[in-house]
Design a binder for these strands. Structure first.
Lengths: 242, 242
DNA sequence: AAAGGTGAGGTGGTCAGACCAATATTAGGC
DNA sequence: GCCTAATATTGGTCTGACCACCTCACCTTT
């Protein structure tokens, strides 16, 4: 019986006899590394891949389709297949399914608060000059855009991305970019006016500057507090809007 | 000039003329909902889908391949295609790419600390009897398994999943299941002995019980503290092991 | 010389039909 | 009744064809 429990716990499954698709992707990964292809570069054509790999074109297509689903490549009809990310052999690709219930945006905001406060704290603790400089640049662009047009959605996103980058934990940036913003986009995409949070922007604008200053000065508590206030504003805007 | 900047900000792109694949998936989603198919159920055969949708079989295959990449279906040669998740029309599927550098596990632990402390706090605040009961059941199973075999990896995971469920924010559970544990698995898979944290398990065992008690009593601070100690042990084990 | 229009070739998108390999089902023998 | 072998079903792959779209060089027009 003890051995039974053990069997079900020890991961004993290095079998996985992959189909062609998996092998093609491995081969392609090796090729991409060897050829030093970067994001944006074009891959060989489907016909060329099929010929060089010695498989049918439909098989190549299914493999590439898989990569597209994982966001690794972008297939453009009539043009070619392009790398969408820098690919390394050690990359792990996981699909995440999110049920867009009514509270999905508020839930994502809760998640954002949890990770962004920590990210701000880490950023203030590290205080790398290079990171601080990038945050400052993003901040000034955001303030300029806001002064000019009254909104600065893209610049705001860039600012927070710089924050997450400065935390030194790439997972934070990934979750922000690939989960939180996508939920937000999906939510905004189904509404008439996507600029839900704009009327509140001028209230949170000063806090963005305080956040930058706190990070620059290594003030962890101040950075966390600034993030809390910023997210409070977003949350208030959302609740008011719903 | 102002209009230029505005153009680049306002999202003016509701075009996206999807290929067949996307339309097939939409149609399939509707069918699955209408037929009330649940996870584990078998989908119609590729040939049947092609005939009913009026498209070629290869097109159906590419669409299903996409779903498999997203983890929605499992395709079994010679048997059929099976639903791997309950699918709703409102589900959002995002691919997340993680670079498994050396520090990926420590990074994932940092992420886990950020979201699990918040999840524990929320769980203690809500204190739903049903959730508390499930946590208790998982705790007792874990303690029993640990007393019997000296390890309880699966039960430990179930316990924490019950915690995340009790938080009321499904995003937390998803990130734990689909990102954190997969990073951990990928890391363990490449090592001789996957039970890295086991020698430390008996130290963190009491804290699991304290975490349960804090949640049951609505003690938010106590729950957060217990999570912190648990993750401290895991982190210590990791650092010691590396 | 610069702007806009045109056409040929390249590339992904789709289809049909065929055969293979793994699995599931059925029919047969004990 | 149970095990086994023949058969049917289903996904996996290949081929070759045609279409729709994009690119880009070439040409016309201004």
């Amino acid at each position: 019986m003890a051995s039974d429990s053990q069997q079900s716990q020890i991961s004993l499954r290095p079998l996985e006899r992959d189909g062609f698709a998996t092998r093609i992707l491995k081969s392609l990964t090796a090729y991409i590394q060897a050829a030093e292809l970067k994001a944006g570069d074009r891959l060989p054509t489907e016909r060329a891949l099929a010929a060089q790999l010695g498989v049918g074109r439909s098989t190549v297509r299914e493999a590439l389709q898989t990569w597209q689903a994982m966001g690794l490549v972008q297939i453009r009809k009539g043009s070619g297949t392009y790398l969408a990310q820098d690919i390394r052999a050690t990359s792990l690709h996981v699909p995440v399914t999110i049920n867009l219930e009514r509270e999905a945006v508020l839930n994502s905001l809760e998640l954002r608060r949890a990770i962004e406060t920590d990210a701000a704290r880490l950023a203030a603790r590290r205080g790398r000059a290079e990171d601080v400089e990038r945050i400052r640049a993003a901040l000034e662009e955001m303030e300029a855009a806001y002064a000019a047009h009254g909104f600065a959605i893209r610049q705001d996103r860039t600012f927070h991305e710089a924050m997450f980058t400065a935390s030194g934990n790439p997972l934070y940036l990934q979750i922000f970019q690939q989960i939180i913003t996508r939920i937000s986009d999906a939510f905004n995409g189904s509404r008439e006016n996507p600029f839900v949070t704009e009327p509140y922007a001028d209230e949170s604008q000063p806090d963005h500057r305080r956040l930058y200053e706190a990070v620059a000065e290594g003030d962890e508590a101040g950075a966390v507090a600034a993030v809390m206030r910023i997210i409070d504003f977003v949350e208030a805007a959302l609740r008011h809007d719903q």
